[in-house]
């Protein structure tokens, strides 16, 4: 296989990595918000449940969570929905690992939503009481205060920790190969197994590096853009 062919083969895998990355970010980031609000709820049961969920999700390896999501429906309810989905998509559309990708997406989204929620919570709780009170004495409603005063300050504060998580996320997508999802490293292992080529495995690092470089630039710009005020 030529260098270009290998690159194209790995790129197919990296598209799956990017898919996991994008879906996790687009679904996990919004989902983190209600979890954060539950963790801050004054209603004790809600707070307790949400804290326990966050504790479990952050306390267990993501790889294990992928296994759990993938296998538990089959073991517990005797409906292995993800392998059924695999078969359905393979028979009808010729796509091999659709069901497993869905399982990975669910595991990643839940996992990252919990991490994001803790960042949101930290950001929200770091805003001084005085900002809320200044809004209250001006006769603003709670929701106006949150949307017009607090939110942007929170965003400014969470961009650096979110950037870290986002950069970790693209590298975490490699974990998907634990249930044989054809992300980039799985593709490289495939080459090692079938073509006895080991160098593509190391070559995958370049894909990650370039993407992380791009992310760093974009997120750095965002951080700079938000630095016009100091809170």
């Amino acid at each position: 296989m030529s260098f270009l062919e290998v690159t194209a083969f790995l790129w197919d895998g990296f598209l799956i990595s990017l898919l996991i990355f994008a879906v996790t970010l687009l679904c996990g980031a919004p989902l983190g918000l209600p979890i954060a609000f539950c963790s801050m709820s004054r209603f004790k049961p809600v707070k307790a449940v949400s804290k326990v969920i966050v504790w479990i999700v952050r306390g267990v390896p993501l790889m294990l969570q992928i296994f759990i999501i993938y296998y538990v429906p089959g073991l517990l309810f005797e409906t292995p929905i993800f392998s059924q989905m695999d078969r359905f998509f393979f028979v009808n559309y010729g796509i091999a690992d659709a069901g497993r990708i869905v399982a990975v997406l669910i595991a990643f989204t839940l996992n990252y939503a919990c991490y994001f929620s803790e960042i949101y919570r930290g950001g929200i709780e770091s805003i001084s009481k005085g900002q809320y009170e200044a809004g209250y004495v001006l006769g603003l409603t709670k929701s106006q205060i949150f949307r017009k005063i607090i939110l942007k300050q929170v965003i400014q504060r969470i961009v650096p920790p979110m950037s870290n998580e986002i950069i970790t996320l693209i590298k975490d997508t490699a974990l998907a190969n634990c249930i044989i999802v054809c992300e980039i490293i799985k593709q490289a292992k495939e080459l090692a197994a079938t073509k006895a080529m080991i160098w593509p495995l190391f070559y995958t690092g370049v894909f990650y590096l370039v993407f992380v470089g791009l992310l760093t630039v974009v997120l750095g710009r965002l951080e700079k853009k938000l630095s016009y005020f100091r809170s």
Binding site: S128, G130, E133, V137, G139, K152, Q156
Partner: peptide
């Protein structure tokens, strides 16, 4: 309570301006 607050104004010791505005 919100309506009641509108009768009063309060200037804080540490200003509490909105930094992003």
């Amino acid at each position: 309570i919100r309506q009641n607050r509108l009768h009063f104004g309060l200037v804080f010791q540490n200003f509490n301006l909105f930094p992003q505005y």
